[in-house]
């Protein structure tokens, strides 16, 4: 009997096999993959209600097309057609043979032409870190191409100090984030700390509200998380601040525009920003395919969903036929001049 106990104990120690007590691996049939994809989005995607999408009826419609004898390519094509029904550029799917991204066919104007800027506006420009900056008609101009490029306080000090040295002649700032597709939100905070006015008072500004999913139901969101920023003792961009945006201003760049708009001396010119604002969540399906989708959404402090974009104070479009003028920049320069 003792030998039996010893044997049992030894077998427990030595024959440990966790795979017997872990969840069983999926058989990866097309039906399982389809259901996994549909359920992952059902439990995580945030815009069903906002876009009026009936995800259950879409399930019924596409489930009929799935057969367990279908090849990977046919399964992929069916899943892509289903994902297209979300009309969402943040939704993607990656396999080893193809990659899907939704492409919007809405006809938006480009409203940005770098060649025009380089040829007619950026003469005598300087580059400090990620910023291209110059002075145009006594107005400071800064272009920031991507929030992926790190912003450092020293760089902003250099730019602002240069503008302040010409304090009597500089009438305002045009800050251009057109075609900026977003990036690291920390860079947005560093810029936002330079908005507003120099003051010894501690001022807290509301930036935006974030809604995160906290459960699998379509309406299961955590309470809105309002983000604030405290004014710090750093030098600010002087005088009037006009931010230039277009439909290519997306992601955290659009979030930055939403936060900046709250400052009393900031106005936005150009076109409404693009969307793709929010936490983009990835998931792996049972067959190893990878998908992404938005897992949170943001609103302005007055509850406008940022997926609709940040509308400008003044809507201005460029004339695509005119290869010598940037109408949006001209409008901003004129506005600052007119304030004088």
């Amino acid at each position: 009997m003792k030998k039996l106990y010893v044997l049992l104990l030894l077998s427990f120690a030595l024959l440990s096999c966790e795979r017997l007590i872990m969840p069983k691996p999926s058989t990866k049939t097309p039906t399982e993959v389809f259901e996994n994809l549909w359920t992952t989005l059902d439990e995580g995607y945030v815009y069903f209600k906002y876009k009026g999408i009936n995800w259950d009826s879409i399930h019924k419609e596409y489930k009929k097309k799935i057969v367990d004898t279908m090849e990977d390519r046919a399964l992929y094509d069916t899943c892509v057609k289903m994902l297209n029904r979300l009309y969402d550029p943040s939704v993607s799917m990656k396999t080893h043979f193809a990659e899907y991204h939704y492409i919007s066919f809405k006809d938006y104007k480009a409203n940005f032409n770098r060649k025009i800027l380089e040829r007619y506006y950026w003469q005598n420009h300087e580059k400090t870190g990620p910023f291209i900056h110059t002075v145009i008609d006594s107005i400071g101009y800064v272009y920031y191409e991507s929030f992926d490029e790190e912003v450092r306080d020293e760089q902003l000090d250099i730019i602002i100090e240069k503008l302040r040295l010409n304090n009597d002649s500089i009438q305002g700032i045009v800050f251009d984030i057109r075609n900026n597709r977003g990036g690291d939100i920390k860079n947005a905070y560093k810029l936002l700390q330079r908005m507003g006015v120099d003051t010894s008072y501690t001022i807290t500004a509301q930036l935006w509200k974030a809604y995160y999913k906290q459960g699998p139901g379509h309406d299961e969101f955590a309470d809105a998380q309002t983000s604030y920023i405290e004014q710090v003792e750093k030098t600010k961009f002087p005088k009037q601040f006009i931010l230039l945006t277009n439909r290519g201003t997306m992601g955290n760049a659009a979030l930055f525009a939403a936060g900046a708009k709250g400052y009393h001396n900031v106005k936005v010119y150009g076109d409404t920003t693009g969307g793709e604002v929010g936490m983009v969540v990835g998931a792996e399906l049972v067959n190893g395919w990878q998908i992404t989708f938005p897992g949170s959404y943001f609103t302005t402090t007055d509850d406008r969903n940022l997926e609709e974009g940040v509308p400008p104070f003044l809507r201005v479009d460029m004339d695509p036929a005119d290869n010598t003028r940037d109408a949006i920049l001209d409008a901003a320069l004129k506005a600052i001049h007119d304030l004088k």
Binding site: G44, I185, Y189, W208, A210, Y212, K213, Q214, G215, Q225, S227, Y228, I229, N252, L255, M279, V281, G295, S296, F298
Partner: peptide, 13 residues
């Protein structure tokens, strides 16, 4: 982690 492994990176605080 929280649901969907959320990290509230958009909040500076």
């Amino acid at each position: 982690p929280y649901y969907l492994n959320r990290q509230e990176l958009a909040d500076p605080e």
